[in-house]
Amino acid sequence: MATVVEPLPSLPLARLRLAPHSVMPRRIDGAWWPRSRDLLTELPLLIGALPRAWGQITAVTVNTAMWPASPGRMLVANHVVRLRRAAGAHGRHTIGLLSQGRGRWDLLVVPPEVDAADAEPLMAAAAVDAG
Rank of each mutant, 00 (worst) to 15 (best):
D115C: 09
L75Y: 01
W33C: 05
D118Y: 04
S22D: 15
H93N: 13
V109K: 02
L43G: 02
N78R: 10
E113C: 07
P121H: 07
E6D: 07
G91S: 04
A31I: 15
A124C: 03
V23H: 15
P121F: 11
A69S: 10
V76R: 05
V60H: 00
E42N: 09
T94V: 08
W67A: 06
R37T: 10
I28Y: 03
R17Y: 06
I57S: 00
A49W: 04
D29W: 06
V81R: 00
H90W: 10
V5N: 05
R73S: 15
H90D: 13
A89K: 15
L97P: 05
G55F: 11
D29P: 02
L75K: 04
W105E: 01
I95W: 08
A19W: 14
L108A: 11
G30E: 02
P71M: 02
T64S: 12
E120W: 13
L18P: 06
Q56D: 04
V60D: 00
M123C: 08
L97C: 10
P112D: 07
A65N: 09
E42P: 04
P44Q: 09
V81N: 01
A125W: 11
L45T: 14
L97Q: 07
R35H: 09
W54T: 06
W33F: 14
H90N: 04
T41G: 03
P71E: 05
L83F: 09
R82Y: 07
A69K: 08
P20G: 11
R102F: 11
